[in-house]
């Protein structure tokens, strides 16, 4: 999985405005006014289904109506990777799904319908634009120990990039 910060709001520009109006800078007050745009590549659709439940963000995701699908383009959880029998069963299931997809498209079924057989393990790519407030809420929820490993990994990467870009906002995570 790869996460890249494409751009973010220039916090200094906001601080200049605040100074010009004699308003002191308070990180919590500007959380709605700072946005981050991320590129997210090669996480599973299991994880993006969880991610888009956070509605206060803008998402554009690779469409399965147009992209191809293969076993190589799938995420394998460690719990399966580390268990030989489980990995064998997983491979059989994925192979059947991808072969079904190929068979359906070869029979003239459009990809938008053939994709119904594809697994949630399939890797995907998307862009996401989110405010600091919304991202903080996502971080608070999805980096908790009860969150699943893949979204925890994804959101930790997003948080690290946001922290690096705008450290003043991330001195503490505001819980909401």
């Amino acid at each position: 999985m790869r996460v890249k910060l494409l751009f973010h709001t220039d916090l200094e520009a906001i601080k200049r405005v605040l100074r010009s109006k004699n308003v002191s800078f308070d990180p919590e007050k500007v959380l709605d006014h700072v946005v981050y745009m991320f590129e997210i590549e090669d996480c599973s659709r299991v994880t993006t289904h969880q991610l888009v439940r956070h509605r206060l963000a803008s998402y554009d995701q690779e469409s399965q109506r147009f992209s191809s699908a293969s076993r190589e383009g799938s995420v394998t959880p460690v719990s399966i990777q580390s268990n030989e029998s489980a990995l064998k069963a997983y491979d059989v299931a994925l192979k059947a799904a991808y072969e079904g997809f190929e068979k359906l498209t070869s029979l003239g079924v459009p990809k938008e319908d053939a994709r119904y057989v594809l697994p949630s393990a399939i890797k995907t790519k998307l862009v996401m634009t989110v405010t600091a407030r919304s991202l903080m809420h996502i971080v608070w929820q999805r980096t908790a120990m009860q969150a699943q490993w893949e979204i925890r990994d994804l959101v930790t990467k997003m948080m690290d990039l946001a922290k690096e870009a705008t450290p003043e906002l991330w001195a503490k995570i505001i819980e909401r």
Binding site: L6, E39, E41, D60, E62, K125, V127
Partner: peptide
């Protein structure tokens, strides 16, 4: 970029 992301499998 956002629009092409929907239709492309390529890296950003």
């Amino acid at each position: 970029v956002a629009m092409r992301r929907c239709y492309s499998t390529k890296p950003i």
